[in-house]
Simulated scan of single mutants.
Amino acid sequence: MAFDAVVTDLDGTVVRADGTVSAATLQAAHALSAAGVPLLAATARTPTGVAALTTLAPHLAFAVCCSGAVGWVPGAPEPAWCELLPRAEVADLVAFLTRELPTVALAAYDSRRWRMTATYQAMRPNTHKGPITVVEAAALPEAEACTLVLGHPDRTPEQLVAALIEGGFDPTRLGLHRAGRRFVEVTAAPIDKASGVLRALRVVGADPARTIAFGDMPIDTTMFAVVGRSVAMAGAPPEVLAAATDHTASVEDDGFARALTALL
C-alpha cells in the first residue's frame, strides 16, 4: 500500500452523530489490518471512551487519547504513557476560571477517573465512559490530572481560550485545544495531537511522511502538519479544510471509507 499507517480522529470523523461506526468504515479498517497497515486513533476520548467503541477498537493498533496526553494500546491494562499537568498550573487555572467565569464547567481526568463539577455533568451528560466523581471545583487540583476540560454555557471555545490567554495563561506553558464545538481541553505544553501521533508512530514503526491522517476539527490540524497526507471531512471548519491536502465526504456519508478506497 501507499502508506505505512493511517491515523484518524474519532468523533465526527469515523464515529457518527449517533455514536455508531458504519459498516463501510469497519470494512475499511479491516482491509487496512489485512494489508498490514496499522490504524491509529487520535482523539480527545480517554482509553475507556475508545474501548467503548466495541466494533472499532479491535481494529486499532494504537490510540492517542486525551489530545496527546495519554497513549494506549487497545486492550492493555495500563497506558503506554500519561503526561500530567503541573498541579500548580491546574490550581491557578481553576482559581482564575471560578473567579472570572463563575458558571464555568470543569472536569479533570487522571488516566483512570473523571472528576467533574455538577455544572460540567449537566452540560455534558452521558458522554464520558468509566468512573466519574462529582466534586466542587476547588477539589480538582487534588487530582494528578493529565487533562482538564472546560466549557461555558454562554462562551465559545475560542472565547474561552482568549480569556485564558488574556488572564496570563501562556500557550507555551499549557496546551489549549478546542475539543468539539463547546469545550476546551487543556494539556501540558507542548502536548497535542501532533506530539502524540509522532510518538505513537514511533511505537508502531511507521514513517510520518508515509502516514495519512483524517480529521474534522481545528484540534486535528496539528497532526495534519506532521504527516505526509491529510484528509478533512466535509463540513469541517474552513481552517481545517485549508490545512488538509485532501477532502472527503462527511462521516455520515462514509467519507473515511470513500477516501481510503480512492487513495489506495
Rank of each mutant, 00 (worst) to 15 (best):
A243Y: 11
A17K: 11
L263W: 15
V70Y: 08
A61P: 04
T211P: 04
G71R: 13
R87D: 00
T147G: 09
L53H: 08
A91R: 12
H247F: 00
V134K: 06
T117S: 07
A52P: 01
F96A: 09
A234H: 14
T221V: 15
A23Y: 09
G175M: 03
A2W: 14
R87S: 10
L241A: 10
D11N: 13
A163Y: 06
D9R: 04
L60Q: 09
V149R: 07
F96N: 00
T211R: 10
V135D: 07
P102F: 11
H152Y: 01
A232S: 13
L176I: 13
A69K: 12
D246S: 06
K129Y: 13
A213F: 07
R16F: 00
V134E: 14
V104L: 03
H152P: 01
A88T: 10
P153R: 04
P190T: 01
H177T: 15
V186N: 00
T8F: 12
Q27S: 14
T147E: 15
L40C: 06
N126K: 13
L53C: 02
M223L: 13
R124T: 07
E144K: 15
T211K: 01
D216E: 04
T20K: 07
L39P: 10
A209N: 11
L160T: 01
G68E: 08
A242C: 01
A244Q: 09
G168L: 03
T98C: 08
P131Q: 09
V14L: 11
F183T: 12
G19D: 05
R16C: 06
V15M: 04
T98Q: 13
L164C: 01
A17M: 01
A108D: 09
S22A: 10
R178H: 04
N126A: 14
T46W: 08
L32W: 12
G130T: 09
A24C: 07
I219E: 13
P171K: 02
L85C: 03
K129W: 11
A225C: 04
P171A: 07
T133D: 15
A5R: 02
V64N: 09
R124D: 12
A105R: 11
R173G: 11
L176A: 06
L106W: 03
E89S: 15
T25G: 10
F62V: 05
V134D: 06
V227I: 10
A91V: 03
G196N: 11
G196S: 12
A34C: 10
